[in-house]
Amino acid sequence: MSEAMPVLEVRGLRKSFGAVDALVGAELICPAGEVTALVGDNGAGKSTLIRCITGVYPPDGGAIAFKGAPIGFASPTEARALGIETVYQDLALVEDLTVWQNMYLNREVEHGIGPFRWLDRRRMIAETEAKLERLLVNMPPVRAKVRRLSGGQRQSIAIGRAASWGSALVIMDEPTAALGVRERGAVEALIGRLRGEGVAQLVISHDLEQVMRISDSVWVMRRGRTIARWRTREVDRTRIVAAIAGAEG
């Protein structure tokens, strides 16, 4: 691996919706094997930035580079094909399907010839087990329907699914906002394990204690602009709060 080539690099990104300037100069760098935290008040432009990175919105100006090459995603499908996976707050899990069916949703492994194809259930079940076992402390049964799982287990499966498709960048929007303390711990442990495997992770979080616990760098957005960036270990909560509020940067 070349020295510190970031997985994702965003420069001077701009995006307007009519008269509203949602992004006026967003910057971001996500290196491999690091957790990058993106913080800022509601309306600071975090979600718009994420949607530009994942191909939902085409940016008006600026540049996005993925593994060093400039990209202009036309659709979320293209972003996914390149290895950018997003875990939205709604998790995109189908409750009436099993864990393994969700894991392989629209990526099914099949037997058969020509138009006659059927699912290779045994293989998908075994591989779901193998993939999740590596990542999760508390493995839910992969044959269980998602409906029967706890919020933390669901979150873990959504993240595990995003991470297990050879993705280079996993983006998480408030991954623990809806969870209790113990389940939050399990999800944070999962994020730590993914970091160990070299995945670049971008986490939007309002929980600054969590940002301090899990991230390697912190990027602060305010009014559509990136106004501050630090290595997490070189900053404290008070300064981040001040930056979010506009007192610094």
């Binding site: 709604d90 899990l93 189908v94 009436d96 399907l97």
Partner: peptide, 14 residues
């Protein structure tokens, strides 16, 4: 089944 169970999720998964 996914389309019926959670249309947004199904769309999200392509």
């Amino acid at each position: 089944l996914a389309t019926g169970g959670n249309r947004d999720a199904a769309r999200n998964m392509g």
